[in-house]
């Protein structure tokens, strides 16, 4: 039993960091029409990274903390799943366009993974980052399958941080731009807003609605339903389709690349030494 009480310091620190972060609370910043926000989850990550970076935390404490991510993230999975049951009826009634556009979420892999491998020669972190838009459910998937301190974990955590800090800002700009192109019908733009993240949806939706104020009700309904669908199917879609697809694409793309050996990027230093 004693060995289970030995690591009390990790939990005490997690408790203190959480309290400080929640007391600071969400802080919103706005520069004209562009806004971004910082949330408590980011503070605890940053606090931890600083404490580790200035070597206040002993190395074995960092090691021992890592299994607790995997356990606690399971409870987060349960909380995320809470949004499914009560909404099943709405999903069944959603209609073909809304259901099929869910597969558009695989666009993360189609667009980003080839760039990550072809341009940046990234390692397995690319898979963690590219199989989804790295929201809470994706953290849970990677933590469960690879562990958050793996290469894949670094990819998904990086994506999570970027999305949390810049997600709304970026979607505001991207969607205003796409709307101004006049390529897509406003309904399609509305459906695409539902990515599974409420804050990102609001930012995208605001951009579409401001361009088509007379269709606000219809666009909002499409966006909200699509967002609901994404939060319902998100976990299973990511786990059974997007992640295996990314793993496959990663294998195929790195197999014959001169920048990779056995699926691992060749470090720059080693390449220079071979010249």
């Amino acid at each position: 039993m004693n060995e289970h009480l030995k690591d009390w310091r990790i939990h005490a620190l997690a408790f203190v960091l959480t309290l400080i972060a929640e007391f600071i609370g969400t802080q919103k910043f706005a520069f004209g029409p562009l806004a971004f926000s910082l949330i408590p989850m980011l503070y605890v990550l940053i606090f931890g990274a600083i404490l580790g970076g200035i070597k206040v935390l002993p190395h074995d404490m960092m090691e021992e903390a890592s299994p607790y991510i995997g356990i606690s993230v399971m409870m987060l999975t349960a909380k995320i799943a809470m949004s499914v049951g009560p909404n099943l009826e709405a999903v069944i009634n959603a209609g073909p366009a809304l259901i099929f556009q869910e597969f558009g979420n695989l666009g993360t892999a189609f667009l980003a993974l080839p760039i990550a491998i072809g341009v940046f020669h990234m390692g397995r972190a690319a898979v963690g980052c590219c199989f989804s838009i790295s929201r809470e459910g994706s953290l849970a998937i990677i933590a469960d399958k690879y562990g958050l301190d793996s290469e894949e974990g670094i990819g998904v955590m990086g994506g999570y941080i970027v999305g949390t800090v810049l997600g709304t800002l970026f979607y505001g700009i991207l969607v205003s731009f796409l709307t101004s192109l006049n390529v897509f019908h406003p309904y399609s733009l509305g459906m695409a807003c539902g990515t599974g993240s409420a804050s990102m949806m609001s930012a995208s939706l605001a951009a579409v609605v401001s361009a088509y104020p007379d269709m606000e009700a219809q666009i909002t309904a499409y966006a909200a339903t699509s967002n609901l669908l994404s939060s319902v199917d998100g976990l299973y879609m990511s786990l059974f389709i997007a992640l295996p697809f990314c793993n496959w694409l990663y294998k195929v793309m790195t197999k014959n690349s001169r920048h990779y050996k056995d699926g691992v990027p060749i470090p720059k230093a080693a390449k220079n030494a071979n010249k």
């Binding site: 869910e102 189609f110 667009l111 459906m191």
Partner: peptide, 16 residues
């Protein structure tokens, strides 16, 4: 890359 994933999911859904 994360910004590309955000772009990818939006455009992918809009096209379909």
């Amino acid at each position: 890359i994360a910004l590309f994933t955000f772009t990818g999911t939006y455009i992918g859904s809009a096209i379909i």
